[in-house]
Amino acid sequence: MPAVAVVLVLALILVVVFLAKTVRIVPQAFAGVVERFGKYHATLPAGLNMVVPFIDNVRYMIDLRENVVSFPPQPVITEDNLTVSIDTVIYFQVTNPVAATYEIANYIQAIEQLTMTTLRNIVGGMTLEHALTSRDQINNGLRGELDGATGKWGVRVNRVELKGIDPPPSISDAMEQQMRAERSKRAAILTAEGERQSAILTAEGNKQAAILTAEGAKTSLILTAEGDREAAILRAQGEAQAITAVFEAIHEGRPDQELLAYQYLQAMPKLAEGTSNKVWIVPSEFSKALEGIGQLAKGPDSGTTQK
């Protein structure tokens, strides 16, 4: 009985090992390269697969997803003999697991070396300023060269990006000083433009204000002159009406010589009311007025007596 149990256990172990060697599960987005007696036999897709145990061997599991590899900075000499440090990022995908396994020993290292040499060829024909402003051109050139070279390896380069282009420290300082000078220049130009616009607007405002002030003064003078003219016309009309009324009243009253002389005497004191009157000139008519007043005081009887 113990011998039978040992045999059963050994048989069970053999069955388990046989099943383990026969059934192979390949994860999603992976491919298994199967070798039979050391030679390529088949490619296992994702899922459950059956192989011949102890004869077939799944040698490699190839990742079919898009991979990203960042390479360390590489020194590159530009056309103007300046050494810059450029680090790149490569996006690639294995399209042929068999070619990626047997056509190249290490496709990642091969892509890195190919990227380095291609980058030196492309950037070596550019100046530093051109290289700093032509990243898209460098990316497209790298991608075209890498995709053409890696096609036989079963690898497709989807995208190439330059993470950074670092010039020497002295060049960086000079470029920074140049940038500061350009910014200062643009700031000075913008300040001058602003001051010029401000001066123009101020002058325009002063001009408009002066024009409005002149127009206001002109309108005021015109209105004042028209008011003075209207007032003069009204005063003249009033004086004319007053003279006409006095003249008519005098003619209607028919004054005699004595009344006129009396009015003349009443008007004489008003001539002396001013404080600046120092000299009086008595007209010749004043004696005649006095005679008229004297005759008026004597009355008609006095005249008769004298006769």
Rank of each mutant, 00 (worst) to 15 (best):
V98R: 08
I122N: 01
G32K: 06
Q28M: 13
I122G: 03
P45N: 07
I86K: 04
Q74I: 13
Y40E: 09
I104K: 08
R36L: 00
E79L: 15
V58H: 02
N81T: 07
L114S: 13
G47P: 01
V16R: 09
Q28A: 14
N67H: 15
A20G: 12
I90Q: 02
N49D: 00
F54D: 06
V68A: 08
L48Y: 07
Q113G: 10
R59G: 03
Y60T: 09
P53L: 08
A110V: 08
V123H: 09
L19N: 09
E35V: 15
Y102A: 06
E103Y: 05
R24L: 09
A46R: 10
V76M: 00
T22Y: 05
L82E: 14
P45V: 03
P72T: 04
Y40I: 12
N67P: 07
E66P: 07
I77M: 10
N49F: 00
P73N: 01
V16F: 12
N49E: 00
P73F: 01
I90G: 02
A105N: 11
V17L: 15
Q74L: 11
N57I: 14
G38R: 05
T115R: 05
F92S: 10
S85P: 01
L64P: 00
P72H: 03
T83G: 08
M61T: 09
Q93V: 13
G38V: 06
M50S: 08
Q113S: 12
E35G: 09
D56K: 03
V15C: 08
I104T: 15
E35M: 13
I77G: 01
L12A: 14
A31M: 08
Y107F: 14
E79P: 00
Y102P: 03
N96I: 07
N57L: 12
V84A: 10
Q93D: 05
Y60R: 14
V76K: 02
V16Y: 12
V69R: 14
P45T: 06
P72Y: 04
V52K: 14
I62S: 06
I25L: 13
T95D: 07
R65C: 06
L14K: 10
P53F: 07
P73E: 05
V84R: 06
G32T: 04
L82N: 10
K21C: 13
G38D: 07
T101V: 04
Y107I: 07
Y40D: 04
V34A: 02
V23W: 11
Y91I: 10
P75M: 04
A29D: 15
P73Q: 02
P45Q: 09
G47A: 01
T43W: 07
Y40M: 11
S70L: 12
A20L: 13
V52S: 14
V51N: 09
A29L: 15
R59P: 02
V84N: 04
R24S: 11
Q93H: 05
A110T: 13
V26K: 03
F92L: 12
Q93C: 05
G38K: 06
D56M: 05
P97W: 00
R36N: 01
S85C: 01
I55F: 11
T83K: 14
V34Y: 00
D63G: 00
E79R: 13
R36C: 01
V69C: 05
P72A: 09
G38L: 07
T115F: 02
